[in-house]
Amino acid sequence: MEIMRIVVTGPVGAGKSTFIRTISEIETVDTDRKATDETAQLKPSTTVAMDFGRLQFSPQMALHLYGTPGQERFDFMWDILIRKAHAFILLVSSHRPQDFRAARRISAFMRHRSKVPMVIGCSHVDRPEAWPMEEIAIALGYLSPHGRPPMVAVNALERSSVATAIITLIQTYAESQATALR
């Protein structure tokens, strides 16, 4: 069985659980619990362990999606996810500049612990207060377009949008594999 494992990460409320639920062929494993601390102000429940979704596209091939815990605690679960992941997508709400710090923190954490390819998915881009993607990249510390991960607009509620984001991630992974072989 050949399995690609993708980690879906991002700050609380970026749409990680929705992203996985929208594309998964199985009922996602829901580990949402009543939120505590400041997360409760944003949403009543949050993912305490991880979300899991699956796409089985042939008897011997599948794509697994893992969502990181919502609350910003980098515990052993993150370690397990990073060890297994082939690639990850960092979801950021374009209209919530207060989340850019957490997104930057997650991005630095992932970059320093793993070399797997990533894509930045910007959600809520249609909101009037949304920052443009180019500006979000700078706010996350990616100053130059050179060497910056690909950025895509994502609507976590739309299957085609989620699929497009995953395709971009897979293409990024394929390019990194080809580069490693050269």
Binding site: E2, M4, R5, L55, F57, S58, M61, L63, R83, K84, A85, H86, V116, A163, T164, I166, I167, I170, Q171, Y173, A174, Q177
Partner: peptide, 18 residues
């Protein structure tokens, strides 16, 4: 813990998602 993926896998999943 991670192994590389075959090109047939990658082509297959992209076609499926498209």
């Amino acid at each position: 813990d991670r192994t590389g993926l075959s090109s047939s896998f990658l082509n297959g999943i992209v076609a499926f998602l498209k």
